[in-house]
Simulated scan of single mutants.
Amino acid sequence: MWLMSNVEYAALTTGASVLMRDGFGLKVLQCQGNRIVKLFRTKRLLSTSVVYPYSLRFTRNAKRLNRMGVPSVEVERTFYCHAIRRHGVIYPMLEGEALVAILANGEANDDLMEKLAGFIAQLHKQKIYFRSLHLGNVLLLPDGRLGLIDVADLSFNWLPLSMWQRRRNFRHLLRVSQHRQLIERFGIERFIECYLDAAGISCGEKSRFLSRLVTAPT
């Protein structure tokens, strides 16, 4: 890991565009050469992120996704900058457009929604549990495939995902009001049924999945 000085951080981010920030400061920057700098803060002193930073989790997850055939970013370098008290990763921008932007620019795109349902089903078949699943973290790539960004909060399970985990993934996907409205154009129940078909869920389990989705705990 690169122990980055304040001077080096300033040189890296001079002229950068801010892509994301929150109440704690900058989160994602687009720097020269279409390099992305993603910053991670330690949220609690008593946290596993103190000994195993999110930057390393992000890098590990991105590498494993790519090995499994799921397009994701390719991290060039991880760093820690004491001056800003942030860990970070540097990677070339993944070419593509976020689904939220595509869907917000026009009418319901049935082919894209069916592709997304099948993509989620494939992730679950591969025992991948992406806790940060939402329309802003899934990109449509130039070759027509879907890819993932912001992959720090992701796990690779030994066992098949439970129905509770699958429902929780959908609750997370639908909890952002704008994203839910975009999916409603296609039809939420129709979207979930496309997923269930692609996932090979039995008819009996389908009805239970749909009926419990609304009341499943987060």
Rank of each mutant, 00 (worst) to 15 (best):
32 Q>D: 09
33 G>S: 06
34 N>K: 15
34 N>M: 06
36 I>L: 04
37 V>H: 01
38 K>N: 03
39 L>T: 10
39 L>Q: 06
40 F>R: 13
40 F>W: 12
40 F>Q: 10
41 R>D: 03
41 R>Y: 11
42 T>Y: 11
43 K>F: 12
43 K>P: 06
44 R>I: 09
44 R>L: 13
45 L>P: 07
45 L>Q: 12
45 L>Y: 15
46 L>H: 14
47 S>P: 01
47 S>W: 00
49 S>F: 10
49 S>D: 15
49 S>L: 09
50 V>E: 09
50 V>R: 15
50 V>F: 10
51 V>K: 15
53 P>A: 00
54 Y>M: 12
55 S>H: 07
56 L>Y: 12
56 L>R: 15
57 R>W: 08
58 F>N: 06
60 R>H: 02
61 N>Q: 06
63 K>T: 13
63 K>V: 10
64 R>P: 08
65 L>A: 04
68 M>C: 10
68 M>T: 09
69 G>R: 13
70 V>W: 02
70 V>H: 01
71 P>L: 02
72 S>H: 04
73 V>C: 04
74 E>T: 13
75 V>S: 08
76 E>I: 13
76 E>T: 14
77 R>S: 10
78 T>I: 09
78 T>L: 00
78 T>M: 02
80 Y>R: 12
82 H>V: 15
82 H>W: 14
83 A>Y: 14
85 R>E: 04
87 H>Y: 10
88 G>N: 08
88 G>K: 03
89 V>L: 00
91 Y>M: 13
91 Y>H: 15
92 P>E: 10
92 P>M: 11
93 M>D: 08
94 L>F: 11
95 E>Q: 14
97 E>N: 14
97 E>P: 06
100 V>I: 15
100 V>A: 05
100 V>G: 06
101 A>T: 13
102 I>F: 00
102 I>P: 05
102 I>Y: 07
103 L>Q: 03
103 L>R: 07
103 L>W: 05
105 N>S: 15
105 N>P: 10
106 G>I: 08
109 N>T: 14
110 D>V: 15
110 D>G: 12
111 D>Y: 08
114 E>P: 10
115 K>Q: 15
115 K>A: 05
115 K>P: 05
117 A>D: 07
120 I>Q: 06
121 A>F: 00
123 L>I: 03
123 L>E: 01
123 L>F: 03
124 H>N: 01
124 H>E: 08
127 K>V: 04
128 I>V: 14
129 Y>Q: 08
130 F>N: 04
130 F>V: 05
130 F>C: 03
130 F>S: 09
131 R>A: 03
132 S>G: 11
132 S>C: 12
135 L>Y: 08
136 G>F: 05
137 N>G: 06
138 V>N: 04
138 V>F: 04
139 L>R: 07
142 P>W: 08
142 P>H: 14
143 D>L: 11
144 G>A: 08
145 R>K: 11
146 L>I: 03
147 G>A: 04
147 G>C: 00
148 L>M: 07
152 A>K: 04
152 A>V: 06
154 L>C: 07
154 L>T: 02
160 P>V: 05
161 L>H: 09
162 S>Q: 07
164 W>T: 13
165 Q>I: 07
167 R>W: 03
168 R>Q: 12
170 F>C: 02
170 F>V: 13
170 F>Y: 11
171 R>I: 07
